[in-house]
């Protein structure tokens, strides 16, 4: 399978104060192949979200390189045509003063597409994500977290990206809604041939949904391999701990 995204020796250092600094991500390399789901697991503060934010260019990389196929370096416009993200807090990822439909259609609006076409497309996207068309007119505080996350997925899919990054996209939702969102993601992955980077700390979800898994600890990549391999037969002590802490 083709490699669609490649991260090589990526390092991110946050300067907290003038003299001290935190190494949030330390020499991480991985690649994402077309049509696969890559899980990134690890405890809080292990650098998972930092990786997501570096891939999407929301924060700069200290050293190393992340390259996306067919995207020139530092060309954000090309990047956002290929890579989109679903955020952790569904309600917080929509502007409270604008309708959901506005948020979903914004990327299309920026492409100069005409308003009627956008409205139609927003309706289709909402249907695809299991919401009725009428939700386009609602405000984020008027819908539940699960519905809002569906709308967020619709927004991420609006310009038909090839890579979808889910940054703890299900963590803020309760278990039944989590399952619905996961089923939606699995459906979309099949229909749209998406490559997904799925950041999560729920190992059960990762095993169910991901093809390959990266385990992170304190900014370092401690283990990687296929999901079954890593979870059923962990080699690293930290991974063993992580799995034990779930199943005991």
């Amino acid at each position: 399978m083709d490699t669609i995204l490649k991260a090589e020796h990526v390092v991110k250092i946050f300067d907290t104060q003038k003299k001290s600094s935190t190494k949030a991500v330390d020499d991480v390399s991985f690649e994402l192949r077309k049509g696969e789901v890559l899980g990134i697991v690890g405890e809080s503060g292990s650098g998972k979200s930092t990786i997501a934010r570096m891939i999407t260019g929301l924060i700069p990389i200290t050293s190393g390189e992340i390259s996306v196929k067919d995207v020139q370096k530092k060309n954000k416009r090309q990047l956002y045509d290929k890579v989109q993200m679903v955020f952790q807090n569904p309600v917080g990822s929509f502007n409270p003063r604008k309708t959901l439909g506005y948020g979903i259609g914004e990327s299309l609006k920026n492409k100069g597409i005409n308003k009627d076409v956008i409205d139609k497309r927003v309706g289709e996207l909402l249907n695809l994500c299991g919401l009725e068309k009428e939700y386009a007119k609602k405000y984020p505080h008027e819908v539940s977290g699960g519905q809002c996350q569906r709308a967020a997925i619709a927004r991420a899919l609006a310009i038909e990206p090839e890579i979808l990054i889910c940054d703890e996209a299900t963590s803020a939702l309760d278990v039944t809604v989590q399952k619905q969102i996961m089923e939606l993601l699995i459906k979309l992955k099949k229909e749209k041939e998406l490559s997904v980077i799925f950041i999560c700390h729920n190992l059960a979800l990762v095993q169910m949904f991901c093809d390959r898994v990266i385990v992170m600890c304190n900014g370092k990549m401690v283990e990687s391999g296929t999901a079954d391999e890593v979870i059923n037969n962990p080699k690293d002590d930290y991974t063993k701990n992580l799995i034990d802490s779930v199943y005991c």
Binding site: T56, L58, Y80, F87, G92, S93, S107, N110, R155
Partner: peptide, 12 residues
Amino acid sequence: SEFINASIMAGD
């Protein structure tokens, strides 16, 4: 906030 990041990613 996340909605600003989301709008950056929408190409604003």
